[in-house]
């Protein structure tokens, strides 16, 4: 009896992610969701620029590769063209909260009926570990070698809290994937974000606190701990907006 297998919505391509990176887990959760909701044939995904730039190779649904930060605008175009299809973006913190903040906020403000999976790992991974808009105060990166200093580099951005001030979004939740219970919780949130779109509820974003052992300079285990110890205190988990409740 098979008790565990690769979701149908993931291709056979070997993922390029580093050992200990949680992108693979989140990809799987998205794919499981697509399978369970039976929407593979009508889902269109938008890949970002960043570590998950090659996401278009990993999902079996139709995919579009967007310019850096522009995925929500591209998704807007797709959804307006094909309102009956399911459109999701998969974006990192530099993509969504730095260069693409304008597209993020405005697609949220419009209440665009799309689903955004937002990977917050507090660093630019693809380019080798530079400061992200979500890097923590004191966090050492290639471009904050003395630690992020609020006086010169400002403060990390809490995306869910920021967007929660808008009337547009239907659903905003921050989750993490650093333990089995948290992975299960993240799955619930991601599935809800897709179900919302099917139900026509509007803009749904799930922020996933993720680990980057390579660029944080830690073992995978320590990286998972770092999420608990450093990230969650600044980025509390929970629901920031849910138009139902």
């Amino acid at each position: 009896m098979i008790v565990f297998e690769k979701p149908k919505s993931l291709t056979d391509a070997v993922m390029h992610y580093c050992p200990g990176c949680t992108h693979g887990i989140v990809h799987r959760l998205v794919a499981e969701t697509i399978d369970e909701l039976g929407i593979e044939g009508k889902t269109i995904g938008i890949a970002p620029v960043g570590c998950s730039v090659l996401a278009y190779n990993y999902f079996t649904c139709d995919m579009i590769e967007a310019a850096h930060g522009r995925a929500p605008a591209v998704a807007t175009g797709v959804k307006r063209s094909l309102p009956d299809n399911i459109v999701f973006t998969y974006q990192g913190d530099g993509d969504l909260a730095s260069i693409g903040m304008c597209e993020t906020i405005h697609s949220a403000a419009r209440g665009e009926n799309i689903t955004i999976i937002f990977i917050n790992n507090a660093i630019y991974g693809m380019t080798g570990g530079q400061m992200a808009p979500t890097s923590l105060i004191g966090q050492i990166t290639q471009t904050s070698p003395y630690g992020r200093n609020a006086d010169t580099q400002g403060y990390p951005i809490r995306v869910c809290e920021l967007l929660s001030e808008l009337d547009g979004p239907a659903y905003l939740e921050r989750v993490t994937v650093n333990s089995v219970p948290q992975v299960k919780n993240a799955k619930r949130a991601i599935k809800k974000a897709f179900q919302n779109q099917i139900d026509g509820k509007g803009f749904s974003l799930v922020e996933v606190l993720s680990s980057c052992p390579t660029n944080w300079g830690m073992t995978p285990q320590d990286a998972l701990k770092w999420i608990d110890e450093k990230m969650i205190p600044y980025y509390p988990l929970g629901v920031f907006k849910d138009k139902e409740g």
């Binding site: 605008a73 591209v74 807007t76 959804k79 307006r80 063209s81 304008c102 597209e103 405005h106």
Partner: peptide, 26 residues
Amino acid sequence: GVFLQAESEIAAINMVYGVSATGKRV
């Protein structure tokens, strides 16, 4: 039809990119 006043010219052209990818005149 769809008319959308985008948040910027950059967003507008990327919306165009999205619709074009779906094979429609935009």
